[in-house]
Amino acid sequence: MIRKFFTILAAVSAIFSAPALANGNIALESEIFVERITKTAGKPAVVLERPTSLIPGDRLVFVVSYKNTSPTPATDVVITNPIPAAVRFQETLDGSEQVSVDGGKNWARLEDLRIALDDGRFRPASPADVTHIRWVILEDITNGDEGKLTFRGVVK
C-alpha cells in the first residue's frame, strides 16, 4: 500500500519537474581512509586518516555514503564499488554484501563463489579474488534517508 503511494508520487513529480530530477535523487560520496598506528603513552592506537599518499601494505577503509536529497524515493537501490586494481579486498564490516570475482559478471556471497583452476578443478574464492563489491538495498530510500557502506582493503 505504502509502496504504491510512493510510486504514484514519483510519477507525479516526474511530470512536473522531469529535467531537475532526471539526474536522480541520491547523493553518493566515496571516501578512503588509512589506518595509521600511533603510540600513545607506549600503547599502540589505530587512527583513521585521510591519506594524501599511500605505500604498499597500508590498510584502507573505504566508506561509501548515500543520502536521498530529493522528495522522491529511490527504489531497488544497488550500490556497486569496483575494487581498485592496486587494492586487495579484505572484508566488509557486516557481511551484507555480494561480491564478484569475474569483473562484475556474476554476483554471489563470497563463500558461494569458486575459482576454476588450470587442471579443471575448482577452489573456493578468497577475498583476494574479489574484483567488485555491491550492496542491494531492499528498502526504498526516501527523502533524508542516509547510510554508510564500508569495506576494507590493503594496498598491494
Binding site: 514519483a10 510519477a11 513529480s13 516526474a14 522531469a18 530530477l21 532526471a22 536522480g24 535523487n25 541520491i26 553518493l28 566515496s30 578512503i32 599511500l54 573505504f62 561509501v64 548515500y66 522522491t72 529511490a74 527504489t75 531497488d76 537501490v77 544497488v78 550500490i79 556497486t80 564499488n81 569496483p82 581498485p84 592496486a86 587494492v87 530510500i141 594496498v155
Partner: peptide
C-alpha cells in the same frame, strides 16, 4: 594511482 568510484543504481522517477 588508487582511484575509487562507487556507483548507485536505482529506480528513480524517470
Amino acid at each position: 594511482p588508487i582511484d575509487n568510484t562507487a556507483t548507485a543504481s536505482f529506480d528513480g522517477p524517470d
